[in-house]
Amino acid sequence: MISIRLYMNGNLMLNEFRINLLSFALWLILICFFVAFTMAFYPMFIENQSQFMGLFNLFPTGLFEFKGISNFDDLFSVLGFYAANNAVYMQLFGSIYAIILGSNILLKEEYNKTADFLLSRPLTRSEVYLTKTAVMVFYILILNIIVILTGYLSIEFVKTGPYDLQSYLILSLYTFLLNLLFGFTGLFISTLIKRARPFTTLGIGIVLFMYFLYTISKITDEAEKLGYISPYRFVDANVLNPDYALNPWFVLYFAGLVIFLALTAFFIYKRKDIYV
């Protein structure tokens, strides 16, 4: 508590929560709607299993592999269906939300020309950085928690048999780490920009490019190694694997990158010349 009082500012934090609340609410509603809406198709999917199997057999298995599906039968388990169809919402939309939030949270003071006001208040750069970063992490965390709950309730509502809740939570934890990494990527890039302007399109482009790179690497053998550039490669979505567990190396990858980006952004911001 003492350290929070020393290194964060309550007034700034409350204002940041207020400013970012509307966009958070819109993204949350959008993602929760897609998660619940897609899960609502699961009962119909099960009812027409034989027709869908006939259709899927026309595709190569690798097409779904990157979504954690190694066998088409997996798609008919409730968790397999979730991993193949729903997890992508948070992995894509959640990451886009995170990178936009991270890229704007410091930089918007510069391109909205309020940085002079904020940085002439009795605040250190460290306080500004830590307070704003805490708000970013908080919103990414809360978005994940609410989407996890929505996903859980949707699965509970449509399930036809038992499923492994732990696997669901592990997949969700990977998704949270992925979102967090994109949030800090946005934050890091924003500290490098000298003449401030929003880079929302670039942020969305980065997420989509990384997703595309990983998808390509799973579909074609030639591009397999390219997948390692993308953080999606380190999200293990194979929830129906009996040995499915949190891979400590993957967790270390996310944690290491997040810490590296957070610290580098912190030191750059501390010495950054602010222009308006």
Binding site: N9, N11, N15, D116, F117, S120, R121, V276
Partner: peptide
């Protein structure tokens, strides 16, 4: 900065705030 006041050449503030909200926000830093 606790003991200093500053008027920048371009008077920019948070556009969505009212004057009262902005001045209250500013003063709560002190």
């Amino acid at each position: 900065k606790k003991l200093t006041g500053y008027i920048p050449s371009d008077a920019n503030a948070y556009m969505k705030m009212t004057v009262a909200e902005f001045l209250a926000y500013s003063s709560r830093f002190y």
